[in-house]
Amino acid sequence: MSLTNHLSSKESPIRQFIYECAPQLALAGTRGRRGHVVASSFGFDELLALRTQLPIPEEVKDRKSHAVVAGMALDYRLRMDLPGFNFVETVAQRGLDILAADPGVVHRGKHIHKVLNDAFNFAYLTLQKRDSHPLNLARASVPLAWCESIARTGPYEALSGELGRRIKQAKDAVDLMLSIDDSLLVDIAVMRDAVEPLLDAWNRGIEAGGDYVPNPRFLGSVAVGGADADWAVGDMLVDLKTREEITSSWIRDTLFQLLGYALLDLDDSLGIRRVGILLPRQPYFAAWTLDDLLDEDASEALPSLRADFAVLLTNKG
């Protein structure tokens, strides 16, 4: 079971443990005056007041599918602008490998793998070109998102619907890449441009010697289905969210997800002391210290919390 699924289940001992680590955060945004006061103390009001400036384009019919692909593709598009982006080390590559190992799990699996693999290579070549057009870079990020969906949900689930039909109908990778909707490409490109100042700041910090780990996994990840985050920049764990509607309950849930990741870093290999949520549709970047979320000194509290969490994760099965 994934960390997200654990956090969605009130019966999960993993959820219960994480919530008990941050009792004040658990109250934030709940009904009543106290819930509102606590939410304000965590800065929820600033996020709730945000206006969505970059909504999903009006012409998009299947908004849910668009949102999922746009979010994953944007993650890749932003990583392309940060140091050391390596196609081979991505979850997208893992998805391709999973399909290659058993293409028979879906109808015309060998064809699907070949077309996706060629599209993957197209993305690689696009990134190698100097001064590639922004829409070409956005296009290059989409097959990576498709391949990642195979790793996340499995080949059958990811390819038994519209995506599988689209790839099977494509004669080759060029045909597939040209079939990507312009609305999706523009959406990715404009969201990327909206967060460019933050990318520039991160790049300056990394060039000055700051730590940077894309798509970090944690020592405890294997116990919850291989949990991974978007980026670790310096001492901050960052999650990208392309959500349009922001609510108190959603902010709280997202912060618990990030806190869960921080606790899964059992050996403190990333030195996480802050967490951040990047909201490109607003656009806005919000950050919190672990001191604030835990309501105590994180450096003092984390060793014992992680030790207890490790025991729980070990005994879970």
Rank of each mutant, 00 (worst) to 15 (best):
residue 149 S to D: 09
residue 25 L to D: 03
residue 283 P to C: 07
residue 254 T to V: 08
residue 102 D to S: 14
residue 280 P to R: 01
residue 198 L to Q: 15
residue 30 T to S: 12
residue 213 V to R: 09
residue 306 R to Y: 07
residue 60 V to Q: 02
residue 96 L to M: 07
residue 162 E to P: 05
residue 8 S to A: 14
residue 136 N to I: 03
residue 159 L to G: 05
residue 42 F to W: 05
residue 47 L to W: 03
residue 152 R to D: 09
residue 242 T to M: 10
residue 67 A to M: 08
residue 62 D to Y: 05
residue 112 I to E: 00
residue 201 A to L: 15
residue 211 D to W: 08
residue 236 M to Q: 14
residue 284 Y to W: 13
residue 94 R to E: 13
residue 108 R to N: 12
residue 309 F to K: 04
residue 117 N to A: 10
residue 6 H to Y: 11
residue 153 T to Y: 15
residue 20 E to C: 09
residue 21 C to V: 04
residue 258 L to S: 08
residue 243 R to K: 12
residue 118 D to C: 11
residue 101 A to T: 11
residue 54 L to C: 02
residue 199 L to C: 06
residue 201 A to Y: 10
residue 28 A to R: 01
residue 134 P to E: 12
residue 241 K to V: 07
residue 129 K to L: 11
residue 53 Q to H: 08
residue 218 F to I: 09
residue 244 E to F: 02
residue 205 G to E: 13
residue 31 R to C: 06
residue 276 G to T: 06
residue 269 S to L: 11
residue 204 R to S: 15
residue 121 N to D: 12
residue 13 P to I: 02
residue 70 A to G: 02
residue 148 E to W: 08
residue 202 W to D: 11
residue 189 A to Y: 14
residue 68 V to F: 05
residue 19 Y to P: 00
residue 115 V to H: 07
residue 252 R to H: 05
residue 172 D to C: 06
residue 29 G to V: 06
residue 73 A to E: 05
residue 162 E to D: 13
residue 155 P to R: 03
residue 284 Y to A: 15
residue 54 L to P: 04
residue 57 P to G: 08
residue 100 A to S: 14
residue 213 V to I: 14
residue 151 A to H: 12
residue 298 A to Q: 01
residue 236 M to I: 07
residue 233 V to L: 07
